[in-house]
Simulated assay, not measured.
Amino acid sequence: MNYRLTTSFINTFDLDATLILLDYQLDKLKLEFVTYQRDL
């Protein structure tokens, strides 16, 4: 049997930047939702 191992390297700086962007987007959505609920 032949096995192939594929590896990927993740730049942790890029990962941190992506998580920060996702946190920002999530906070923005939460704020919009709270505003929407308040206006109902």
Rank of each mutant, 00 (worst) to 15 (best):
T18H: 07
L21Y: 07
F13Q: 11
L19W: 02
M1N: 10
N11G: 01
T35M: 01
L19C: 03
L29C: 00
D14M: 02
F13E: 12
T7G: 06
T12A: 03
Y36H: 08
L19K: 10
R4C: 02
Y3V: 09
D27Q: 15
F13W: 01
N11W: 03
L26S: 05
L29W: 06
L21I: 04
E32H: 05
Q25E: 14
I10L: 15
L22V: 05
D39Y: 01
Y3D: 02
D23G: 07
R4A: 06
L22T: 01
N2I: 05
K28F: 04
T18S: 11
R4G: 00
D23W: 02
I20H: 01
L15R: 11
L29E: 12
Y36A: 10
Q25G: 03
V34Y: 07
S8D: 10
F33H: 07
L15V: 08
E32S: 08
L40I: 04
D14R: 04
Q37W: 00
S8I: 08
I10Y: 09
D16Q: 15
L31Y: 09
T35P: 02
I20C: 01
F13A: 14
D16N: 13
M1T: 11
L40R: 09
S8L: 10
A17L: 13
K30Q: 11
L22R: 08
L21D: 12
K28S: 14
T12M: 08
L29Y: 04
L15K: 12
D27Y: 03
F13P: 00
D16K: 14
L26N: 08
T6N: 10
L21Q: 14
M1V: 07
L31Q: 14
T6W: 02
D23Q: 13
I10G: 00
R4D: 06
D14K: 05
Y36T: 10
F13V: 02
L22G: 01
T6S: 10
A17P: 04
R38V: 00
L40A: 05
L26G: 00
Y24W: 01
D39M: 09
R38Q: 14
I20Y: 02
Y3E: 09
Y24D: 09
F9D: 06
L15Y: 13
I10E: 08
Q37C: 06
K28I: 04
N2E: 10
L21R: 15
D14A: 08
L19H: 01
Y3R: 12
D39A: 09
A17S: 15
L22N: 06
F13R: 12
R38G: 09
R38K: 15
K30N: 15
D16F: 10
L22S: 08
T6V: 11
Y24A: 12
L26Y: 03
I20F: 02
Y24H: 05
L15G: 00
T7P: 01
L15H: 09
N2V: 03
F33K: 13
M1K: 13
T12N: 04
R38Y: 03
L5S: 03
D23H: 13
T35R: 12
Q37V: 07
L22E: 06
L29K: 14
T12C: 04
L15D: 06
Q37P: 01
D27L: 12
R4K: 15
L5M: 11
T12F: 01
L22P: 02
Q25R: 15
L19M: 11
Q25W: 03
V34E: 14
Y24R: 08
T18Q: 13
F9E: 05
N2D: 04
Y3K: 13
